[in-house]
Design a protein around this nucleic acid. Structure first.
Length: 388
DNA sequence: AACTCGGGGCA
DNA sequence: TGCCCAGAGTT
């Protein structure tokens, strides 16, 4: 394949790409002719090859905003069904602002990073109360909304309002690292500064939204983290790491972080086809989401019967029989691993929960804000209850 | 600057 | 299993 690459790729193009990249690395400055040629190649490719994604069929800033919030740290394929459900239920920002937080969290259920849904809801209410329902149209005003940071403001401003606002996401970090052979690690201040500066220098010109989306599209469809498809790349003539054959080694990965193990024990209190659920605090992990009475604790060793009893007693619950029918689950998060044990409990002595609680029918539990792992446990419980 | 915050898809 | 994904807010 390396031979095919070199045969396919003209030496003249390599030299041209290398000199352009050196110039960038030296002074963060490009000749406008080179910049224009790069933009033209990239945007032309994007306009011909772009994927048919739902949020590209609209010019509604509200819909574009919704898609960008959902796409934060979340893959396109995961977002698509959520995007359709949200727009169907909340066609306008006023509909979203008028909804309850619980309903918004319920529709967000399973998508993760639930603070996004809270801030989405808050931002919708700000748009209605302070902007008369008209979505802010400038990068500066967008930044002031909850949940809209540097990237999302750039995305909405450029895509929905054609503002020359730069944007850098995970794709763009990777592309610039390869294009300019930037060896600083992902997550480093040096790489971040360099990439935002490069993005700002490139977004000048016509169709800034297409330029920004083209960069991300390139990362998503060709410039993969592993095994990039350089033969199909519209801008490989400018790619310094392709010329050097080092594209597979970039970007430099960040040092892996530890993911400590947490023990979780949940009691599935079942009565008449219903299960007892409690609501988590409105901040922190799974904020405001519903789950089961129990406890979380850091560490490798299993939760003891004493810890279990004490925790349940504080909640105002006392089981009549010790936990039995233990069922283990493993749930991996970005920054911790949950070793979960569930116990189905059919009898109890005391049931006066001191925290927000509900008895939820196993038959229909789609209305409740729950995490993905809680959904899985409930699904298993329903299957076990109905099956035997 | 480091940490917190989900979940899933893929080699 | 490890990596990483159209990041933002808090400390």
């Amino acid at each position: 394949m390396a031979d095919l690459d070199s045969a396919f790729f003209a030496a003249r193009e390599v030299e041209r790409g290398a000199s352009w990249a050196e110039e960038i690395q030296g002074e963060w400055k490009l000749e406008e002719t080179e910049r224009s040629a790069f933009r033209a190649s990239l945007v032309s490719w994007f306009q011909q090859q772009q994927r048919d994604l739902p949020w590209r069929a609209t010019r509604d800033p509200y819909a574009i905003w919704l898609s960008e919030i959902m796409l934060q740290q979340t893959r396109v394929e995961t977002v698509i069904p959520y995007y359709h459900r949200f727009l169907e239920r909340f066609p306008t920002v006023r509909d979203l602002a008028a909804a309850s937080l619980e309903e918004v969290l319920s529709l967000w259920s399973g998508l993760g990073y639930y603070r996004r849904a809270r801030m989405l809801h808050q931002a919708a209410q700000v748009v209605v109360s302070e902007h008369e329902g008209e979505f802010p149209s400038t990068h500066k005003d967008l930044l002031s909304l909850p949940g809209i940071g540097r990237y999302t403001a750039g995305a909405i401003a450029s895509i929905a309002f054609s503002e020359e606002a730069p944007l850098v996401d995970g794709n763009v970090f990777r592309i610039f690292a390869r294009l300019f052979s930037l060896t600083d690690a992902i997550g480093s201040k040096e790489l971040e500064r360099a990439c935002w500066q490069l993005a700002a220098s490139l977004v000048r010109g016509e169709s800034p939204g297409d330029l920004n989306q083209a960069l991300m599209e390139l990362g998503a469809t060709l410039c993969f983290p592993k095994k990039p498809s350089c033969l199909l790349c519209p801008v490989r003539a400018w790619c310094r790491s392709f010329a050097a054959g080092t594209q597979a080694e970039l970007p430099t990965p960040k040092a892996p972080k530890e993911t400590p193990i947490w023990q979780v024990m949940w009691g599935l209190f079942v009565e008449k086809g219903r299960v007892l659920m409690i609501q988590r605090p409105h901040a922190g992990l799974f904020a405001g989401m519903w789950e089961f009475p129990g406890l979380y604790r850091a560490g490798e060793e299993a939760i003891s019967a004493q810890e279990w009893d004490d925790t349940l007693a504080e909640m105002g619950i006392k089981a009549a029989i010790p936990p039995s029918s233990a069922k283990p689950y493993k749930h991996i998060l970005t920054h911790r691993q949950l070793a979960i044990t569930t116990h189905t409990i059919l009898q109890w002595e005391k049931m006066e929960p001191s925290v927000p609680f509900r008895w939820v029918e196993l038959a229909h539990l789609g209305e409740l804000p729950i995490s993905s792992i809680v959904r899985r446990v409930l699904h298993d419980l329903a299957a076990d209850s109905l099956g035997g």
